[in-house]
Structures are given as C-alpha cells and as structure tokens.
Computed example of a mutant assay.
Amino acid sequence: MDRPHSPRQPEPPDDETPPPDDLDYHHRGGRLHFAARQRGLDSTALGQLLLNLPGMLMSLLVLLLISGALDAWLGLPFWILPLAWLLSGAMTFHRPTEDFLARYLLRLQRPMPEEYARLAPVWREVTARAGVDGQAYELWVEDSDDLNAYAACGHIVGVTRFTLDRLPSSQLAAVLAHELGHHTGGHAWVSLLGYWYALPGRMAWFAVRLLVAYALAFTSYFSWAATAALVLVICVVSYVTITRLYGLPLLLLVTPYLIAAVGRRAELRADQHAAALGFAPMLAQVLQAMYATESQAKRQAVAASGHKAAMPGVLGRLLSTHPDYPTRIHRLRPYL
C-alpha cells in the first residue's frame, strides 16, 4: 500500500535503464514470478522473539506499576497505558512511522535521482532472483564514508553513499541480497519489536542503577556504616524482587548475550540467503575488503599510539552482534 503523504519511488522504464555493466541482468524485460511467501520467520528470528519475552514481560510489569500509580493519583483507567504500549508495536510497520525512523533515528535520506538510477536496476535484479516484490520495500541512502548497509523496520533497505559509489554492481547486489535476507527471514522486524517492547524495562533498569549510584555516593559522605546499611537494604530488596518474580531479573542479565549469539546466527543466515541467490563470490569479496580495511585501521592505530591494540574481552566478543569476517568468509566457501 502506498504511503498517503509520499508517493512510492518510481521504477525507471526498462528502455531507459541500462543493465549494470558487471551484473548478469537475467530479468530485464522478462516476466517476474513472485514467490507465494514473500517473507517468513526463520529459526533465528523465532529465537530472537522468544529471547525478548523476558524483557517484554519486565516492561509490562513496569507499565502496570506506573498505571497503578496513575490510577491512584489521577483516576486514569488502569488498562490504557499497557494497551497503548501493546498496540504501539504495529506502528513499526506504518509507512509514515518508518519514514520518521529512517530520517531521524537512522539518519537516512531519500536517494537522489542519479543514486536511484544506480540502485533501482540492481535491486530489481536481486528481488527478481529471490521472487520477491521489490516495490514492497523502500530504498534509502546514508551519507557516510563507511562500507555498510541496513535492513530495518518492515520495509527499509539502506546503503551508505560509499557503498553506492565505490562498489561495482555485482558486489552492490550481494550487499543488497544480504539485507533482503534479513527482511525475508523476519530478522529486521523482530529485532525492532524486541527493542521497542523491552524499552520501558531498560529505562526502568537504567533509572534504578542511577538512583542506587547516587544513593551510595551520598551515603559515602557520612560514614561507612550508612553505606553498609544502604547496601544491606539494596540486597534485601533485590532478593525479595528476584524471589517474587521467579528469577526473571536474573534471566534479564543473561538474555543480552543470548540475543547477541542469535544475532550472529542471523548474519550468517543473511549471508547464506545472498549466496543461494548466486552472490557468494561477490559477497566474499566485499567481506574480504571490509576485513582488510579493519585490519589496516588497527595497524595504523598501533603505529600512531606505539602500543599494541587492546583486544576485546570475552564479554565484549559475546555481546557482538556480528561474526568476525574470517568466520563469515569460511561459511561462504561451500557456495563459491
């Protein structure tokens, strides 16, 4: 469905759009056969959805507590705030809301005519190979000098201007096929919904940590006894909270690592999607270039500082949402 306030990006006529010079443009002028299922929910997306449930439940609890206070103080019906929060998730698929997120959260821009003329035929080739209606998605550009691309919300596909200007069409197609894999696998919308529904719980946790930090700093000015008493009170409250909530707060401490692990698996699934469409060699070239750029940046940082670059710790690696480049390239080998 077209957005009511902004027309869909037009497809250039076939007779005016030359095929990319280094991409086998099989579907030019031919009939496109769309798959019956345009998108699904693969195992990684389902895993992300399940792992986000504890955060969603904690957010619901926070909103219920706030609703109870508003009901007592202002007479506001108890169910309004939780219901509005639950229904707000549907806004992530609302085209004007997606436009707002793309512009002001992701800092993306609509492609200029020459940029769209570059993107459109490559995107049409990728979606044609996948049997997906490319018109269902919106193409965006980020003004960045990094080699990167995005799949966000329900219909956003974004690339950086560096990616658009520097990559040949075949490698650009591989990058877009990877992002399409995130959409067709359900990774993009599941990640956004998980983040949105866990946001009240995250904000409450941040507020509690800030309050505890200020309270400890305040009591430390008086005596160690006051600090010890406050620590004891915090321990008792934490124990009661954990037991009353059946260990849910403890589970929330583990879920970020599990969600990151599933996110790394989702990246490999998106790589596999691009490889299955015939873009494995091109995607491997892009990953090798990114790996070389990252390695060079580390060497330059070491040369500038004179010290060996600090390696990320175990927890940092466990929280990484992307596998390392050698792992991704190794997983592409069966498709090369």
Rank of each mutant, 00 (worst) to 15 (best):
V157P: 04
V159M: 09
H155P: 12
Y116G: 10
A177I: 04
S169M: 04
G131H: 08
S169N: 05
H183A: 09
A152K: 12
Y116C: 10
A130K: 05
L147F: 12
D143M: 08
A173K: 05
R103K: 15
S169A: 14
L105C: 13
H178A: 03
N148K: 06
G181E: 01
Q109R: 15
G185K: 13
R103G: 12
A136V: 03
D146G: 14
V141C: 12
D165I: 01
R110A: 02
H187L: 03
P113L: 13
R118G: 13
Y116I: 08
D133I: 03
P168G: 09
W123Q: 10
E179N: 07
H178R: 06
A151M: 13
E115A: 14
R107I: 15
Q171L: 01
E138R: 05
E115P: 14
G131S: 09
L119D: 13
L176V: 00
A174N: 06
T163S: 11
E138Y: 00
V132I: 11
R110Y: 03
A102L: 12
G181R: 07
A128F: 04
P121Y: 01
A102W: 02
A151T: 10
W140K: 04
G131V: 02
H187V: 01
R103T: 09
G131Y: 06
R118Y: 06
Y137P: 02
G186E: 08
Y150E: 12
R129I: 13
H178N: 10
T160H: 10
R103M: 11
H187G: 03
L106P: 02
P168S: 08
R124A: 01
L106M: 13
A136F: 03
R118W: 02
Y104T: 14
L164S: 15
L164T: 12
D165N: 05
L176F: 00
S144W: 13
A128Y: 04
T127V: 08
V132G: 00
A117C: 08
E115Q: 08
G131N: 15
Y116W: 14
D165S: 05
I156S: 11
Y150D: 13
D165T: 02
A174H: 05
R161G: 00
Q135L: 06
L108H: 06
R124C: 01
T184P: 03
P168L: 03
V132N: 04
A136H: 14
Q109K: 14
W140V: 01
R118T: 06
E125C: 02
E125W: 01
G181M: 07
E125R: 05
A128L: 00
R124T: 01
E142A: 12
L176S: 14
V122Q: 12
H178D: 11
G158C: 12
A136C: 07
Y104W: 04
C153F: 03
G186K: 07
R129Y: 01
V175F: 05
L101A: 15
V157L: 11
L105V: 15
L167M: 01
P113V: 06
A117F: 07
S170D: 04
P113D: 04
A152Y: 05
A177L: 00
A102M: 09
E114R: 07
D133L: 00
A152F: 03
L101V: 14
S170I: 00
R107A: 15
